[in-house]
Amino acid sequence: MNFIEARKLVHEYIRRDEDDNVESILTALDGVDLDVKEGEFVAILGHNGSGKSTLAKHLNVLLKASSGTLWVNGKDTKDESSLWDIRQSAGMVFQNPDNQIIASVVEEDVAFGPENIGVPTSEIWKRVERSLKSVGMIQYREHSPNRLSGGQKQRVAIAGVMAMEPKCIVLDEPTAMLDPNGRREVLDAVGQLNKEKGVTIILITHYMEEVIRADRVYVMDNGKVVMHGTPRAIFSQVDALKSYRLDVPQITLLAYELRKAGVPVPEGILTRQELVEALCRLF
């Protein structure tokens, strides 16, 4: 069984008036199928309102499905008794770094998760040290989070999730509020966790550049999964992506335009290096 398996997942936000009559129903997820294997790096792309954040909240059981099934780490999310197990095995990092840091000292914030699941004190110290090291923030352990940059805060948040020793981390637009430097810091840290520690990563974003390192990409629009495949396969369909209001990375766009103009470069070019090599081969 896959680490995450969603079948025909539906989520409806129901708005009711004062008399509890249904005023309107917004279908945020509309029959989503999702499969993620352990150790994979999966990106979920989508424009605002595509349902990607709703999907993320399901993976951590912060929301419950209206219909359909979702299995995380072999456990059914409908089962109340496995709620804490699921939250521990699939940690979550949110968009705003300020609003997810609980303590006023970095190391105490990282300890918050392990404290909640009842890890013994001596083990908490080890975990805090290990997870702060894994995101390169160990030298800030006694700092106040208020003095850190956005990227650093977000890395502390990731360390806070890592300290619970999850098998999977779901990141819900972790870079949306960061400057380019902070964005790179966070993505590097995430990539490293995936490669070195084998942590399954589910990165939810609307920045196309961020999904290049992913193993597989799901594209969502209007609550449905509309495309899925390797980044290369996804990026070769520039017209389709544009129709889902997603911006293609500049390099890929350039290669696409060159192809259209008759220059025979291969499809789905992702990095500057690849384009340079492809062009050099031509002449």
């Binding site: 909240k57 951590n60 912060l62 804490w84 939250r87 521990q88 940690g91 979550m92 949110f94 705003n96 609003n99 997810q100 609980i102 190391e107 105490e108 300890a111 918050f112 998760g113 392990p114 404290e115 909640n116 699941i117 009842g118 890890v119 013994p120 004190t121 908490i124 110290w125 805090v128 806070g160 999730v161 619970m164």
Partner: peptide, 22 residues
Amino acid sequence: DLALAMEARCYHGGDGRTKMKP
């Protein structure tokens, strides 16, 4: 937001909580 983040990190009140710095 904070309540969601705390729940996602398994916060469920003071029962069964350990401390980093008891």
